[in-house]
């Protein structure tokens, strides 16, 4: 394993230290337990937004702390949900008196740890609503799984819910917007290589030089099936089609098209994927009204990409366009 790290046990803390030092105008860190919050603390009267989860998905979530998005982010160990005693103080710190929305990706660990944390925060008189994101169409949502995973679509939920909180919606309102985004966003990913969790030092799975994993999550877990490497256009279609179909996209609808890099794929390749995904949407009569291309929800140094589509309506478009000022997303 080759990484620019010191002791793997210190990786998360040292990375957070560097992150808040580089962006000290936007974020600050609390240690022991560790979480990242907006400089200046909770905004009086605004609904607070908190997310968190295992590390290794940077810039998710700390990179999205700042005006117009999150108020706090809680990083667990790499690919491991943070603990309730880490999450609860972040929930409390994000409360400006109007309550807090917890945005949780749908993994057993994240859900369970946030559940307990919410109980702890409520015991300190913080009103908390929780929205669970589950946009990954690679997982069939049925009796036979833990339910769809929350992946890149989480960024859309965080951005738009952040804008709703900023314009003054109350907790129920912000939660309703977040739920609506989650209901209208779908993703699907591909891995060209595995990634290596620093503490284990071994690749998360073994993938022959001529094969790719379709339907991967963001924790270096293997996907649903393997195929021989294909041209980007063909792979993109394998990602876009299930997304479009699961959303029941109709001709004339407006969408956000978001091509997300898994961490180790150069942006030139992401734009090749974007190009084809857009063509396929346009062939369906769908209008790509907004775009996002880059590494936003990653799996360490994994090579690969995911395609996310969010169905827009006028309100969601306006909220997407609203100003955001975070380390990783800014306009």
């Amino acid at each position: 394993m080759k990484k620019l790290l010191n002791d793997p046990a210190d990786a998360v803390v040292e990375s957070v230290e560097g992150f808040v030092a580089a962006h000290s105008d936007i974020v600050e860190a609390h240690y022991d337990p560790i979480y990242v919050s907006r400089v200046g603390g909770a905004v009086e009267g605004k609904v607070g937004l908190v997310s968190g989860g295992g590390s290794g998905h940077e810039p998710l979530h700390a990179g999205f702390v700042g005006q117009g998005m999150l108020d706090a982010a809680v990083p667990g160990p790499v690919f491991t949900s943070p603990t309730p005693d880490q999450i609860a103080p972040a929930l409390v710190a994000a409360n400006g008196g109007a309550g807090v929305l917890a945005i949780v990706k749908n993994y057993t660990g994240d859900v369970l740890n946030f559940e307990t944390a919410v109980e702890l925060a409520e015991a300190e008189d913080v009103e908390v609503a929780t929205v669970i994101t589950n946009d990954d169409v690679a997982v069939q949502d049925s009796l036979y799984t833990a339910g769809r995973r929350g992946v890149a679509g989480t960024v859309c939920v965080e951005k738009i819910a952040g804008a709703a909180a900023d314009r003054g919606d109350d907790l129920a309102g912000v939660a309703a917007v977040a739920t609506r985004v989650n209901a209208n966003v779908r993703s699907m990913g591909v891995a060209l290589t595995a990634c290596t969790v620093p503490a284990s030092g071994k690749p998360s799975f073994d993938l022959p030089e001529d094969e790719v994993e379709i339907g991967i999550g963001i924790h270096g877990e293997p996907g649903r099936h393997r195929i021989k490497l294909e041209p980007a256009d063909a792979i993109t279609q394998r990602l876009l089609d299930p997304v479009a179909e699961d959303l029941h996209l109709a001709s004339g609808e407006n969408v956000l098209l978001f091509v997300n890099g898994m961490g180790g794929t150069p942006s030139s390749e992401l734009y090749v994927v974007y190009r084809q995904a857009r063509k396929l949407l346009e062939a369906r009569g769908v209008v790509v009204a907004r775009s996002l291309v880059g590494n936003y929800v990653t799996s360490l140094e994994m090579q690969g990409a995911s395609v996310t589509v969010l169905r827009f309506d006028d309100e969601l478009t306006t909220l997407w366009d609203a100003p955001v000022h975070t380390a990783a997303l800014r306009w």
Binding site: P77, T83, P84, Q86, G109, N113, E115, T116
Partner: peptide, 12 residues
């Protein structure tokens, strides 16, 4: 365990 394990195994 609750406050140090995280993941699914911690709460369980």
């Amino acid at each position: 365990l609750m406050s140090t394990v995280g993941g699914a195994a911690g709460p369980l």
